[in-house]
């Protein structure tokens, strides 16, 4: 039974990673940039929701407010910091992304302090049930179901809708897409908006499960979600979902089954997985090997 509980924990964590990974993978797919600030955007979303709830908003209203504010912030970051660098080298864009990530962390630290803030206990209001000796909160199930639904929706959005088609076109060839009459700027903004909204949802689900917010909560989940995106095949929507779940399950199982004094080493396991994936199948599980374009 312990194994099943850990598996469910893993699925819950994996769903959160998958939601963050989608933001990475979509941005990478469209402008080929690792948006290092994505994890920190998620951290900002957690603070937005926290403030809204502290002001007395219902958790769902707080979630809505957080999604809207994070979306605006994400689009603004793209417009101000990344857009001027669209034509310059990848290294410059990457360094800017690092800069934005640092900026968000430090701004959060200045405004809200570096100490941990406690999130309201949302799990208490949800029903929970027992399997053997273990209690399972319905939050885990809600998280997983919600994440899967969002991802299915996103998949059809990218494949079927007009904006989604434009995204795929820009991802394929930005200049050609522009010549075909696609508004590249709007498409990129839409990509950032969707990624940021998903990050806000992920932040809400993460803080419901682990009710503490610090300016650093975005850093590690950010790296892990990116690793999840790489495992699934970067730039591919279902890949991010599968990668996220794989990573979450592996992490929960290593945390659950290795002695607790080494629990910090489960992060090292995640890192080892990334290296193994890059050695065996660098393009990820769903990735296709692409020739270089000259």
């Amino acid at each position: 039974m312990y194994f099943v509980v850990q598996l469910l924990n893993g699925l819950q964590l994996g769903a959160i990673y998958a939601l963050i990974a989608l933001g990475y993978t979509m941005v990478y797919g469209v402008i080929k940039l690792i948006n290092f600030a994505h994890g920190d955007l998620m951290m900002m979303a957690a603070y937005f929701a926290l403030i809204a709830m502290a002001k007395g908003a219902h958790p769902l209203l707080a979630l809505a407010i957080s999604i809207i504010m994070t979306t605006v912030l994400g689009v603004l970051i793209e417009r101000i910091a990344y857009k001027p660098l669209r034509k310059s080298s990848r290294l410059s864009a990457l360094i800017t992304a690092i800069g934005v990530s640092l900026l968000l962390q430090n701004v959060a630290m200045l405004i809200w302090g570096s100490g941990a803030k406690t999130y309201p206990n949302l799990q208490a209001s949800l029903p929970s049930f027992n399997i053997g000796h273990n209690t399972i909160s319905s939050l885990s199930i809600i998280t997983v179901v919600l994440a899967v639904l969002v991802m299915i929706g996103l998949y059809f959005f990218v494949e079927k809708s007009k904006v989604g088609t434009a995204m795929r076109a820009v991802s394929e060839d930005m200049e050609a897409a522009e010549l075909m009459g696609i508004n590249v700027n709007h498409t990129i903004s839409a990509t950032f908006a969707i990624g940021s909204a998903l990050a806000a949802l992920a932040a809400f689900l993460l803080c419901a499960a682990y009710p503490q917010v610090t300016p650093y909560i975005g850093a590690m989940p950010g790296i892990k979600a990116f690793i999840a995106a790489v495992i699934g095949g970067i730039g591919i929507v279902p890949g991010a979902m599968v990668g996220g779940f794989i990573l979450g399950i592996i992490e929960a199982l290593t945390k659950g089954f290795i002695p607790s004094q080494y629990s910090a080493l489960s992060d090292a396991v995640v890192f080892a997985i990334l290296i193994v994936v890059l050695l065996i199948k660098p393009s990820g599980i769903f990735g296709k090997v692409q020739g270089e374009k000259v």
């Binding site: 690792i34 290092f36 990848r90 990457l94 850093a219 590690m220 790296i223 990116f226 690793i227 790489v230 910090a264 080493l265 992060d267 090292a268 995640v270 890192f271 990334l274 290296i275 890059l278 050695l279 660098p282 393009s283 270089e292």
Partner: peptide, 23 residues
């Protein structure tokens, strides 16, 4: 592993490496 494919994988691997080495 990082340089086997084109892209910015070194950044992410070294970022993870820097975190993990202190652990």
């Amino acid at each position: 592993p990082a340089f086997r494919l084109e892209g910015d994988y070194l950044a992410i691997i070294t970022l993870a490496f820097g975190q993990i080495i202190s652990i």
